[in-house]
Amino acid sequence: MEDGLLAIGAGIAVGLAALATGYAQAKIGSAGVGAITEKPELSGRIILLIAIPETLVILGFAVAAMILVLLGE
């Protein structure tokens, strides 16, 4: 039972963070494609901007890992 709750908690931590990342990337991505159409030299910068929200899901992953590793022991 307790293991199950920990797994659900870890799933929520990484899942919600992934949703937030996806939302942010969708917004940045659509604007970025528009910008690249007009200025192709911005490609690198746009890749960078799209990759920035991934920190959210990485932090979600860190929290999930802490739940499983530290609390699951």
């Binding site: 690198g44 890749i47 960078l48 990759a51 920035i52 991934e54």
Partner: peptide, 10 residues
């Protein structure tokens, strides 16, 4: 590849 690029750029 994208993640390695990001780690460098950011």
């Amino acid at each position: 590849t994208i993640q390695a690029l990001r780690l460098h750029y950011v």
